[in-house]
Design a protein around this nucleic acid. Structure first.
Lengths: 225, 225
DNA sequence: GATAATATTTAGGTATGCCTAATTAAGAAA
DNA sequence: TTTCTTAATTAGGCATACCTAAATATTATC
């Protein structure tokens, strides 16, 4: 079996990479849900990907999958494309940050290495995309940052938003209307033990905001002393 | 049958548009050669495209095809994408003009209307791509220009290069090394009746060049008085 | 440890878009 | 007009990547 990629393969590998950060192995159903595809189809594809030469992933029946080195390389290349494109769309073409994800999802499979290289040059080799996610560098190393969830902050702590993980344009628009975007400074006012809601102040907009745990888990921050 | 597009369909319609400018109807084999596909495959596709609702093209067995209005619309939209992308790649990302075609050929099928619109805005609604080909405007009207082939010029005439039709990167690089790119000013020195070679001077580079008819037919110019 | 619920896989099928080989139609030349 | 050549079509296949329905593991619960 020949070793090549396709739009689909890149999507699978990227999804497995993202899901396996948390869990190690990725379950068929989990992957299926994430990709919006039936579990049966996923089984077919992961069998194929695990039988390529070299294989893109390790797979044992009923045990889920994880990436091989070759698979991770493709995933990181795709992720680099994706995140560079997000910055590019935002900075150069003026896309609002909640619209960059969808467009980058299509383009990431199509651009050439030259396009990637030119983009990185024009943008000055950015390390983070507009959502704060780290961009793998040319050697595919992912810059690590020490961040915690907004939900882990305690009252009166100040922090800077570094990353917003959600991809839903509606939520992203909601957050940016509140000023809750990467590099914004916030201060926790209160934390209600009861429902997990967090009350916080956004510095520049001087707005006071109440956020539920569904949202605060998605926002990553670094603490200000 | 539903009416949609795909990468392949857009390629077919664009090719038919380009070929039918000269000939009106486009023959199966002609199209097959242009697309690098077997004639049998082309027959299958054009049958499909002519039976859609609305049809993208008119087709009668053994008589070739021509575009319907719906087909032409898709072709022009794709062409607009393509040529805007060429300008964009050249001006914004710094691609050399001989490399823009290949990249645009892939991207043209993938970018959104928003991407197109943002590109046009950032570039200031250009009317020509780096090869001098006209870019259909938003309403898909193609700007017309009065140009003739370089091969039709007479000795001592001066002209400005408006368009270089060839897509071969090697030839394009050769021409730009000589300064023969859109907007360059040239003057015809001599024309050899015998072999069709044209001797000309390029203004800015003050080079003297001899070009054969294979090339001079591809270069379109407007005459300077 | 048996059973119920859930996860996963197998089997069989579909649409797209390409292929080769064989056939038929059209156009040119004798 | 008949024949030859070239163009176009049909027939039958293949790969990719998805689907549903049915069968089989696995895991959780009693």
């Amino acid at each position: 079996m020949k070793n090549q990629t396709s739009q689909s393969i890149e999507d699978y590998l990227k999804a497995i990479y993202e899901l396996s950060i948390k869990d190690g192995r990725v379950a068929t159903t989990h992957l299926a849900k994430h990709l919006g595809i039936s579990p049966a189809s996923v089984t077919g594809m992961i069998k194929k990907l695990s039988q390529m030469e070299p294989p893109y992933l390790n797979y044992q029946k009923h045990q889920g999958v994880f990436l091989t080195e070759a698979g991770e390389r493709i995933a990181l290349e795709t992720l680099r494309h994706h995140r560079l494109l997000e910055v590019f769309l935002h900075e150069i073409l003026g896309f609002p940050w909640d619209e960059v994800h969808e467009e980058a999802d299509k383009l990431e499979h199509v651009i050439s290495e030259k396009f990637e290289e030119r983009m990185a040059f024009v943008l000055g080799n950015p390390e983070h995309d507009p959502h704060g996610d780290p961009i793998p560098n040319k050697e595919l190393n992912v810059p690590k940052a020490t961040m915690i969830c907004l939900s882990d902050l305690r009252p009166h702590q100040k922090a800077i938003i570094k990353r917003v993980r959600d991809k839903d344009p509606k939520l992203l628009r909601f957050l940016s209307d509140l000023g809750l975007i990467p590099n914004a400074e916030i201060e926790i006012n209160d934390y209600s033990e009861f429902d997990g809601n967090i009350h916080l102040a956004v510095k520049n907009s001087s707005k006071n905001v109440v956020l539920g745990p569904r949202i605060t888990d998605q926002i990553h921050v670094s603490i200000l002393n």
